[in-house]
Nucleic acid binder design. Structure first.
Length: 946
RNA sequence: GCAGGGGUGGCAGAGCCUGGCCAAAUGCGACGGGCUUAGGACCCGCUUCCUUUAGUGGAUGCAAGAGUUCAAAUCUCUUCCCCUGCACCA
């Protein structure tokens, strides 16, 4: 048994006292890795090993490759989550408390957590402990927190630059809003954590005939305005006549929605009426002036849109049915004829004959079969029709004829907005969404909102330029970045609430928490050097010099009061570490953080300090499921390491899957790794029992495998394809070692070389275990500072490996023969003759493999040739035919009969040990067996007898 | 809807770029056997079908279909299905 806990403690202490992970400027080339900083409202669970562990693997690998490698860490506490956390604890939220208990947070600590800053500092300690225990090679001297004044100075400087460049702009923006708390509502603030989805709808004004008022309808399909036959209101709903945005003519909308819309329009209620009172009026279709009636619609909801809808019976199942209902109930109304505005150009669409003029009816019939509720059926029919029409619909009305529906929608909306007969409003699509406080979430159009304008063309071009020369791992996520860079546009950059740095253009607000985290990695290079400087001295001039080399040290020193020496050191540190960096994060951050990271770097820094590499990795599944609170399958990092040891856990989580795909954490997987580490450990322990001597065939085989492995692992780890590394370096190594020993290998020198190199290959992934092995093998002081092995190409031998494969296949074939013989005779086989094919067969094989034109080979065949001496001509031609049958897959064979013969002879003992039958090796030409003719190169004939 | 990534044997997962030693690595599981007082661990074998009752033979096969090629899991096209993201939220 390996005592992981013991070796972890031992080596962590040694690393720390030798200070091998503290990055200082040296002659060596610099390399810096950074991982997305952890948020400080909970300790880490095993899933966090994925990003931080992978980053550590790269750091350790680059160190072994000869780079002076720095892995710093800091903590994120900006934004609202910590405030919300404190608030929930104040309210004695049991869910949260039980979650904290799961992480073994003691009750007296929980008591203190009503103070946001205490929350952060508590978890920072916990996270740091966990990371140290996991063995990350972090330089802890550089640690800082995103809400420190020290860091705020840096962020202020950054925003000064963004503002100077004109990237910060003001505008309006719709957000989910709780009218009760008067606050923006995101996914984490709603009941059941639903994201309030916001979409645009078109509000269309229908002038009431003979009255100075409009009915305001909302629709997702303004292009169907040509097919409007009437307007629906709900007779039981209260409607309000409202003055909107100080326009002279007021609008009717439901009272409920007038309340909701007041967060995006200026609304003044003048009077109220019952829906029933609006009936029987006529209004005018704004697109063509047609007079249409106002009718009662059973399905009209008071809290959706404006509570008034326009009716398009030809294309809307609900409208069609409502009108039918009215007609059959004998309601007095003018005759209504549906008007079709578009046709679906798609074979087999529901709206074919006989429904040419009534597509809606076609869809109703399609979905109303069975016992379905009417509403549900109409819902489905609407969805299907909407989908077909938006994909394949072609407009047939004058002015827009031939346009696709989507195109027409844009055009018609724009036209109507221009004519002041419509405007756009925002609505919550996934209605209703409730805030945690219980109130219905609505949309607020936030005014005076500051944005970072990532849509700036020149800026985008520079970001693209930087991106083009970056390495992206895995390469296949490159496309996602490309579309992210194209797509990113205005991004809100300040909020009313939360912890963080004050927003310079509005000191009442704070900088939004992703916006303050875009270039903080550069701060690592100086964070420990500026600790002693008084905050007020950290003026922009200082950062300007350190990061941009603006001005000269004397001036800056004078202007800021910071010493010449400190400024110089900071600048040197930055320019030493920052040119070569790798950034690590999860795929969910591609579309925000990582893209903003690129943009902000090109905005602030000189070209040589632009990002060089981004690594995106997947997440971790626990026993097949995504780790989540609700599933209760979160494994706290500390618990996991306590139970399994840091190294096996690192191995499973970090090397268990390739980048991008999720890795699976399970006890079963850990056990498999543990067993194999154990095997290496035991072997290392008794390595001195093996004597060294002259190298034999099997030793060369082991060396060949080893060097091939070194080459392959290096290639994989360069791309951080750690799954491949895990198979090659651990799993395959065990298989090879086992085979080597079974095959009679046991050369102390070869074994030691092999295990030593494998230890180095494993060192980045399982660092403590590797140090322990390293020491057991008599090496020192640290494998972590050793030079990464390089493959000795001269030791890689296809020939030796294929000979061993030949041996395996001979054994496999023989085994089947022997088994059949045993079964057939019921006796133990006494004799096993292996007959090696003559050289002429190899020659023929190789000629045919080389020459595509088989006819030519046969024509040139000279049976009088020396090599066919004494061979029956029919036998030759028979063999040629045999080869021709599979001529497309023939391969060149490089071993000749003599070598094959020798190999089998030398391996007799091994063959016997596996087959429990002593083999006799013969050559085809001199063999007496009738089966001799069956021999093929690399496939000896087998003759067994009892 | 838009964008990105996928679909391989009981499961997980490589292979695909650079077509041919691919009936497809490796791990897990299942099954049979060995070891053991027993279990675990460990070791050996097996895990598409047919044929040959002495092996290296054949068929089918990598979501479905079509194509290119002497040859396709791998290249091209079409279809179906799954996952993730779509923002002001860390």
């Amino acid at each position: 048994m390996i005592n992981y806990k013991e070796i972890e403690t031992k080596w962590q202490a040694r690393w720390s006292s030798a200070r091998i992970f503290e990055g200082e400027i040296s002659d060596k080339p610099a390399y810096m890795v950074t991982a997305a900083w952890p948020y400080t409202n909970a300790p880490q669970h095993v899933g966090h090993l994925r990003t931080f562990g992978t980053t550590d693997v790269l750091a350790r690998y680059m160190r072994m490759k000869g780079y002076n490698t720095l892995y710093p860490m800091a903590f994120h506490a900006t934004g609202t989550p910590i405030l919300a956390f404190a608030k929930r604890l104040k309210n004695n939220d049991q869910d949260l408390i039980s979650e904290l208990h799961m992480f073994h947070v003691p009750d007296d600590e929980i008591q203190k957590m009503t103070d946001p800053m205490y929350i952060a500092s508590y978890f920072i300690d916990e996270i740091e402990k966990g990371m140290k225990k996991a063995g990350y090679s972090i330089d802890w001297r550089r640690k800082f927190v995103s809400v420190e004044p020290l860091f705020s100075k840096f962020v202020e400087w950054q925003f000064g630059i963004l503002n100077e460049k004109g990237y910060i702009v003001k505008g309006k923006h719709p957000v989910g809003w709780c009218p009760n708390e008067n606050n923006a509502v995101g996914m984490h603030d709603t009941k059941h954590d639903v994201e309030p989805e916001i979409d645009k709808e078109t509000a269309i004004k229908f002038k009431i005939d003979g009255e100075d008022a409009y009915l305001l309808c909302t629709t997702y399909r303004p292009e169907t305005i040509f097919g409007v036959t009437n307007v629906f209101v709900n007779s039981d709903v209260v409607y309000a006549l409202c003055k909107v945005n100080d326009e002279p003519i007021p609008y009717y909308m439901s009272k409920a929605t007038s309340q909701m819309l007041s967060y995006q329009l200026k609304i003044e209620r003048i009077s109220e009426v019952k829906g029933a009172d609006l009936l029987q009026r006529m209004c005018l279709n704004p697109i063509n002036g047609a007079k249409i009636p106002v009718l009662p619609g059973f399905f009209v909801k008071e809290d959706i849109g404006t509570g008034i809808v326009m009716s398009v019976p030809a294309h809307a199942p609900f409208d069609y049915v409502a009108l039918e209902k009215l007609r059959s109930s004998g309601y007095s109304m003018p005759e209504i004829k549906p008007v079709k505005v578009l046709e679906v150009k798609k074979a087999g669409a529901a709206a074919e004959e006989p429904y040419v003029d009534m597509p809606a009816l076609a869809y109703i019939n399609l979905f109303s079969k069975g016992e379905k509720e009417l509403d549900a059926a109409l819902e489905e029919a609407t969805k299907a029709e909407y989908k077909d029409e938006s994909h394949f619909g072609v407009m047939i009305v004058e002015g827009y004829k031939g346009m696709g529906e989507m195109q027409a929608r844009e055009k018609i909306t724009a036209d109507m907005v221009k004519a002041c007969s419509a405007f756009e409003i925002y609505v919550i699509v996934n209605n209703p969404v409730f805030c945690r406080c219980g109130y219905r979430v609505t949309v607020k159009l936030v005014d005076n909102q500051w944005f970072i304008n990532y849509g700036d063309h020149a800026w985008k071009d520079r970001a693209r330029e930087a991106f083009m020369s970056m390495t992206i791992l895995p390469e296949k996520s490159r496309k996602a970045f490309e579309s992210a860079i194209d797509w990113i546009d205005l991004r809100a950059t300040e909020r009313a609430q939360g912890l963080g740095t004050k927003f310079p253009l509005n000191e009442d607000h704070i900088i939004e928490s992703l916006s303050d985290s875009t270039i903080y990695m550069s701060f690592y290079t100086i964070s420990y050097l500026v600790r002693s400087i008084p905050i007020e001295n950290l003026k922009p001039a200082f950062f300007d010099y350190v990061f941009l080399k603006k001005g000269n040290i004397d001036e800056v020193s004078k202007a800021t009061g910071i010493s010449y020496e400190t400024i110089k050191r900071c600048r040197e540190s930055f320019s030493y570490w920052y040119p070569n960096t790798s950034r690590h994060s999860g795929p969910d951050l591609i579309f925000n953080h990582l893209t903003m990271y690129i943009f902000n770097h090109v905005a602030v820094f000189h070209k040589e300090y632009w990002p060089k590499q981004i690594v995106v990795n997947g997440s971790v599944l626990s026993e097949g499921e995504k780790m989540s609170k609700s599933l209760g399958n979160i494994v706290p990092l500390m618990d996991g390491m306590e139970k399994y040891g840091a190294d096996p856990l690192r191995f499973v989580v970090v090397a268990g899957a390739d980048l991008f795909s999720d890795s699976e954490f399970s006890a079963e997987a850990v056990r498999g790794v543990d067993e194999r580490l154990e095997y290496l450990y035991d072997l290392a322990r008794r390595i001195d029992e093996f004597e060294s001597g002259e190298l034999k065939h099997i030793d060369y085989w082991l060396y060949s495998k080893l060097n091939r492995k070194i080459r392959a692992v290096t290639q994989s780890i360069d791309k951080l394809e750690l799954r491949g590394v895990s198979t090659l370096a651990l799993y395959d190594s065990i298989i090879e070692l086992k085979r080597y020993l079974a095959r009679g290998g046991g050369n102390g020198l070869a074994l030691r070389d092999y295990v030593t190199n494998v230890t180095m290959l494993l060192a980045p992934i399982v660092p403590h275990f590797s140090e322990e092995l390293w020491e057991m093998l008599g090496n020192g002081p640290f494998v972590a500072t050793e030079r990464w092995p390089s493959a000795d190409e001269s030791m890689i031998s296809d020939k030796i490996e294929s000979e061993e494969e030949l041996l395996d296949s001979v054994i496999g074939d023989s085994k089947q023969v022997l088994d059949l013989l045993r079964k057939k005779t019921g006796k133990e086989p006494a004799e096993l003759v292996l007959i090696v094919a003559d050289n002429w067969k190899t020659m023929l094989n190789n000629r045919l493999a080389r020459e595509k034109n088989t006819g030519k080979v046969i024509k040139e065949l000279n049976l009088e040739d020396e090599m066919f001496k004494g061979v029956d001509k029919d036998r030759v031609m028979k063999y040629v035919n045999q080869l021709l049958r599979k001529r497309n897959t023939l391969r060149i064979i490089s071993t000749d009969q003599e070598e094959e013969f020798r190999l089998l002879n030398e391996s007799k003992l091994y063959i016997e040990s596996v087959l429990r039958c002593r083999p006799v090796i013969e050559k085809e030409g001199s063999a007496k067996s009738q089966r001799a003719a069956l021999a093929m190169p690399q496939r000896p004939a087998i003759d067994a007898r009892t």
